[in-house]
Design a binder for these strands. Structure first.
Lengths: 351, 351
DNA sequence: ATCACGAGTGGGAGCGCTCCCACGGTACCT
DNA sequence: AGGTACCGTGGGAGCGCTCCCACTCGTGAT
């Protein structure tokens, strides 16, 4: 490299200017063609496109980002260690939906883990540098400072699973309340009298909603709610085991369990088996998530399916809208910025 | 936004220039401090750092990329559908190592799937735009055109698992030959007489090397190699099952099986069980990868462990070196650019 | 005292693009 | 005929940074 100025010369990648010269037009016109502006005549457009093809022109992303003040990238932020990311099918399904919806866009998806403190600091730096046009936030706990940081930096964001009923961010969620209801109603319809519930972490809004659904399903069916039949878990297998043990000790006569996740249902199953309870004859079991665990459990687990891939797609829709809407200064309130998708009960042998 | 020129003004992110003004120095000096150049006096450096802190200055990546002609990003390209990525622990371990090694760098890691044709076209476009400084290639088949594309675009790349003995790209691999040897030697030491081998896909170089290791271990121990004891698989469970069936039909007297992957060992185990062969009493079984499958199999599977995380780290080392070396025009040949890491046999109850 | 040199510094030029203003031309009105 | 309205178009002026050259000092050798 002889001198700084000679860097891009001779043999380097072609620039907009070179395409313009080749097509016999000005820079502005080439830019318009590249960006699909309608204000270009067909003849000119064809000429430019030919020049682009001949030269093998590819726009320089950095230059575009600098001039237009956008990055054409969005981040999927996973506030969990990578281990959990790979362990839970939730993320892989989400990623699939997101990727699909993004594939006919120029947008680039970045996957960012923010499990450790160190990673979180890195992320903060990253966001401060405005290296993405928007952020997708999945699986956020109630007290996570990330959403506030995003708001402060004025970075468009969409959250999956609102943090509370008063969520201010645009969000996409599945119908946790309805999903839980359908699970309990199913158990009642099968003739179960004493339905227990192992909850998820109650600082997760969705877990609370499932408890609500459980309660209301019982009440609406004319049962009363026995608090001894509700035991908090933490979404882990071990938590499921502990909760199940507790429940059996308190109400040995229970004949059904609705677990707030498949993983916890797996833990519960182990305890039930150890205690000699047959599934579903003695105790019916229903999980939540319809994950691979559910299909492979013995017996196969009835579970509530969430349309996670679909949720991923919707999140992208919302986010892209959000990004586009940053031009007109005034945002139009929160209308249609929070959506809830239906769940589906998948019945298997465990109930 | 009143006018183009006013975009960044008043309230926007601070620029290098503003930091310079604040610190009472020139732009060049601030740039030097930001980039850790040693040619700055301590006093000046302190002043600049103070200004940076007060203003909350964060460099603009796009501007830097444009001016310096680098992106500070590298891509991990997975030429597989996302499904396989999540299913195989190989990738998650690799990602962990790569992430760890990158975490004290300014480099950003991009995860790019190139499973479908569509995704591959997208990737090609992406690379043509030089949006990354380097590429990590994992799990590449012998006839994949990607490495050539990379070479043509002059993008530094490192490959995990060389495509052949004549691999030209810098590469990191585990000792497939040695790993296979240790597995077979272990089986022979346990007194097995007729050791079969279910191979991986033979268009994968590593699988070939494992066959070589198997052969040489037998020969060196004074056994002869019976080709009827070698059956090609394809790394899938089903392939393992087919191969095992085939082997049992041909050599019912076999007393040990070395499978080229844990997944195939899993398939083989099913067949052995169906045929009433006890593991390890009738037939000893050894797998490859030491994945979760191995630990959870019944009986737990003896397996060859590859230091995948370590491989990920080494790949980053090589790649960063490769990127740095693009300044001096002349590359110093291939010395030390291909490395092979040792494997370890993890003994469990299956052998 | 003079010269040579390197350390430390300031700032011009340029990276490749987008945005916008200004301009010539054509079509349509009055 | 003159005016008004657009199209479609060219190109200047940045975007915020890095790179490099030139310049000013001190320091040590002569």
């Amino acid at each position: 490299m002889a001198s700084h100025g000679a860097r891009g010369r001779s043999g380097g990648r072609p620039t907009l200017e070179e395409v313009a010269a080749r097509a016999g037009v000005g820079r502005g016109t080439v830019s318009r063609v590249i960006n699909g502006s309608p204000r270009v005549s067909d003849a000119t457009r064809a000429a430019v496109e030919a020049a682009v093809a001949e030269l093998g022109y590819v726009p320089n992303t950095a230059a575009r980002a600098l001039a237009a003040n956008r990055t054409d990238a969005i981040a999927l932020v996973v506030p969990e260690p990578e281990t959990r990311f790979f362990a839970e099918p939730y993320f892989s399904d989400m990623l699939k939906g997101v990727g699909a919806e993004l594939s006919d866009t120029e947008m680039q998806l970045l996957l960012i883990f923010a499990g450790s403190d160190r990673e979180r600091r890195r992320l903060a730096q990253y966001l401060a540098a405005h290296r993405v046009d928007g952020v997708l936030l999945v699986s956020v706990h109630a007290d996570d400072p990330l959403p506030d940081l995003l708001a402060q930096l004025e970075i468009p964001a969409v959250i999956s699973g609102p943090r509370s009923a008063a969520e201010t961010l645009p969000s996409v969620d599945s119908d946790n309340y309805g999903g839980a209801r359908s699970a309990v109603e199913h158990l009642l319809a099968r003739g179960c009298r004493h339905v227990a519930h192992i909850t998820g972490r109650l600082d997760v809004y969705g877990a609370q909603r499932r408890v609500d659904g459980y309660r209301h399903a019982l009440l609406d069916a004319g049962h009363e709610v026995d608090e001894r039949l509700i035991e908090p878990g933490d979404f882990t297998e071990d938590g499921g085991r502990r909760a199940m043990t507790e429940l059996l000790a308190r109400r040995p006569d229970l004949d059904a369990v609705f677990a707030g996740s498949d993983v916890m249902a797996g833990g519960a199953r182990q305890v039930l088996r150890e205690e000699g309870r047959r599934i579903p004859d003695d105790v019916a079991l229903v999980g939540y998530d319809d994950s691979a665990i559910a299909r492979h459990m013995d017996p196969p687990l009835t579970s509530v399916r969430q349309p996670i891939e679909e949720m991923g797609r919707r999140m992208i829709d919302l986010l892209l809208t959000e990004i586009a809407d940053r031009r007109p200064a005034v945002s139009r309130g929160l209308e249609r910025r929070q959506m809830v998708l239906a769940t589906e009960l998948v019945e298997r042998a465990s109930s």
